[in-house]
Each structure stands twice: as C-alpha cells, then as structure tokens.
Design a protein around this nucleic acid. Structure first.
Lengths: 231, 231
DNA sequence: GTCACTATTTATAATAT
DNA sequence: TATATTATAAATAGTGA
C-alpha cells in the first residue's frame, strides 16, 4: 500500500529503512493488539529496529508468559481425575511421547554464543531462567500431587515442595515457614554433541509410586496440541 | 477493512471469532515477514488461536534466539579494548546500573503457576533453560577472558571454563577433554516475596581482579539501549 | 468447517510541510 | 530530521457456494 508497490527486499537506503520500520512497527503492533482483543487470544511480538532498539508487545502484558506457553503446552495432565491405573499409564505414555517430541524440538537449541555478548545479558537471563526453573519445579511438585501432608497453612500455594531433578529419581519435601522455597541442585547429561539435556524424569508408574509423599495424582484430559511454525 | 467496520471488542460468535483469527493470523505473519525483510531486522511472533493452537514466526527461524535477545542486550561490554582502570570502572558502573534495571524488569516475573499445567511443560522448559544456562555461563566465562591457560587444544570453543554463580564470588576452571562442559551447582537467594533471584555477581574491579585465571578483559563500547514496551 | 469474492476499510510509500 | 498529507496498495468483514 502506498503510492508504489514496494519490492519485497531489504530497503537499501538507511533512512527509508528506518522510516519504513517505524511505520510498520506501529502497524504490526496495532494488528497484534486487534488480533488479541477481537479473538481473545494470547499474542506476543518482539522486534528490533534497524538500529537495535527493542519493541515488544504482549497481549497479557508479559512476553515471558507467552514464551513459556510457546515452549510447550501439552495439556495432557489437566482436567479431571484419573480413575484407574490403566488410565494413568495411558496418559503417561502419551506424555512421554510428547516429551520426546518436544525434546526433539529443543534438543538442538543452542543460544548463539555470538549473541550472548555481555556479562549482563548472561546475568539477567540466568536470573530469569533460575526463577523460572524454581516455579516449574514447584509446579511439577504440585502436579504430582505433592501437597504438604499437614495442611497447617491456608496459603499453601507457595509452600509446595520441590522435585529433585537428578537422574536418580528422588523427591524431597521441604516444609517451609513463611514464603520460602527449597532450591535443588542440578546435574546435566551430555549428549553426543556436547549439548546438555536436563529433562525431567521419564514418567512411569514406578516413578510415581516411588514418591511416597504424594497423596494423589491430579487429573488428565485429552487435547489436540499441534502448532504452525512459519519458518 | 471489510464490509463493515468492526468494533474493537471480543467477537462473541465463536465461529466468526475463529474465522477472523485465521484471516488475521495470516495477515500478521505476512506483516511480520515483510517487516523483517524490508528492514532487515529480527522479528518474533507467537500467538494462540481461540482453540489453543500455536502459531509462531521468527525472522531468523528461532523464537528462542529472539526471546533471548529480548531479555536484555546491553552491549556495554562489546567492542574495543579497555584502556585503563578508570575506563573499566566506569563501564562496570554502567553495567551494574543496567543490571539493576534489568533485575527490576525480571524480579517480579513469576511464570503463572496456572499456566504451567503439566509435568511435560515443566520438563521441556527446564531442559531449555538448563541448556541456555550452560551456554550463558560459558559466554560469561569467555567474556571475562577466561581462556584456558594452556592453549593445548585448537577447538577451544567448547572448552572454556564455567563461572560459579554462588554468592561468594569464585571461579573455577575445568579443563575438559573432548566436548564436555562443566556444570556448576546453583544456590538461590530469597527475596521478601519468596521470589528467587540468582543474578550473576555484582561486577567490580575487585571481583574481576579476584579472577586470577583471567588473562585480560574484553573490550567495551557504549550504546544507547532502550526499548518500547507496548503494554 | 473451507474456500472464493468483493465492497470497504485500513495501512502505508511517496510527498509535502 | 520530524510530522502531516494523500494517493494508492493491501487487508479483510461479510457473503455465498
């Protein structure tokens, strides 16, 4: 649109390029917002100007949340209760399959070393990741039904235990005063490419039953997770 | 655009909503691609349909990379050599300030526990994060000039040491055969909200000088990091 | 549900200020 | 160089097969 049809290639004139960026940036942010409002969906957008300036948009205000949702959302463990062992085993099978697929997706991911160019970037990202890891472990613990045996506190949310992510499957509960979370150590496994993989444990009945502390497993419900990738 | 002007609110009819989503999804992906091509920039887009289907786009093919770039890109440590101690101290000051700001940005981030609803999601994300952490630590080590004292190996890339992220600032080198990386343990600090913060160490001359193994510090160059946030 | 059509609205390239 | 205007291209809401 505009007086002339623009060829779909890099605009060589730096000024024009910046001007076009500015206009189209506004346009796409508007589009993203409209999409999220009209269709009531999560949308996240990250872009950098030709001069490196960052612009971001997230329908719910947090790119991080949507990125997290991007990583994977299998849904298999949501919903109603699990009735019997067959049900559970089937669900776990499905989860494990999904996990392998997702692993495939992530396995070869390697933050481009050339793009992590400052100590600060490393520090900030690490902070984010570490925090996220904690929450995830908390979530895992909750999912596996790791409730404090004694519900002495009403605000139980932040007091669930953490799950050890060691190869050896073990779970420790930490009853914690106030708002503290336990943080566990991690160890990594090397694959043939020197890429570290640290998956949660393979899910199996025996694993779950090993968790003596767990009182009940939360429910399961099927869904059809799939995705488009325009790359 | 269209026969009527659409009110900017959620489309209540589920079918219309889905149809509109489908059309606009294509539109915005096209826009994102055009923006990245015309202006030669990084663009990432994540969205979910009303039924939960994921669509993503990244100009360079990896949302992860662009997300990483989103987290922070201070640039202060890039570029040319540092000439003297004053220079360095000034740079570190700037970095530390930036780090606090970024911390502010990340501090309150808490992956919505309601949105981490499966063990799988936790596992996959954890895998991603752990891998990323490793790379970041590697990058940090490289940045701080942590080269192997004896360059016995040519493929030094994957053999840099890791940086301990403990409160007590300490650095350990791990000379490693083949492709292995050392993985260090982590410990977290609790803030008043129970949110875990695990920053890299505060940067200071004394810290840096404490790193006996480091041979030289890499350069610094100013930039004007800033960003728009449409939220 | 999915495709094509097209009347309209919207975005924007070039231009003017 | 930044902002406003306008002619034109592009996106899409409603429609029908």
């Amino acid at each position: 649109m505009g007086r002339k049809k623009l060829a779909m290639r890099r605009i060589e004139n730096p000024t024009s390029r910046q001007v076009t960026y500015a206009k189209r940036k506004d346009g796409i942010v508007k589009k993203a917002n409209e999409l999220s409002v009209l269709c009531d969906t999560d949308v996240a957008l990250i872009m950098f100007s030709p001069t490196g300036r960052l612009t971001s948009f997230a329908s719910n205000g947090r790119v991080e949340d949507i990125f997290l949702r991007f990583v994977d959302r299998p849904d298999e463990l949501r919903g109603g209760p699990i009735n019997n062992e067959e049900d559970l085993e089937e669900k776990l099978d499905k989860l494990n399959r999904k996990q392998r697929e997702s692993q495939e997706k992530m396995r070869y991911y390697e933050p481009d070393i050339e793009k992590i160019n400052s100590v600060l970037e490393g520090g900030v990202y690490q902070q984010f990741l570490t925090s996220a890891l904690q929450r995830i472990q908390l979530s895992k613990a909750k999912l596996l039904g790791n409730q404090l045996i004694h519900e002495r506190n009403e605000n139980a949310e932040m007091q669930a235990a953490t799950v050890q992510m060691e190869d050896a499957v073990s779970v420790t509960d930490h009853s914690i005063d106030g708002n503290q979370n336990g943080m566990n150590s991690m160890r990594d496994i090397e694959d043939q490419n020197g890429t570290s993989l640290s998956m949660g444990p393979h899910l199996s009945l025996s694993f779950i039953e090993a968790q003596k502390h767990f009182k009940k497993l939360q429910g399961s419900e099927l869904s059809t997770p799939s995705f488009d990738n325009y790359n």
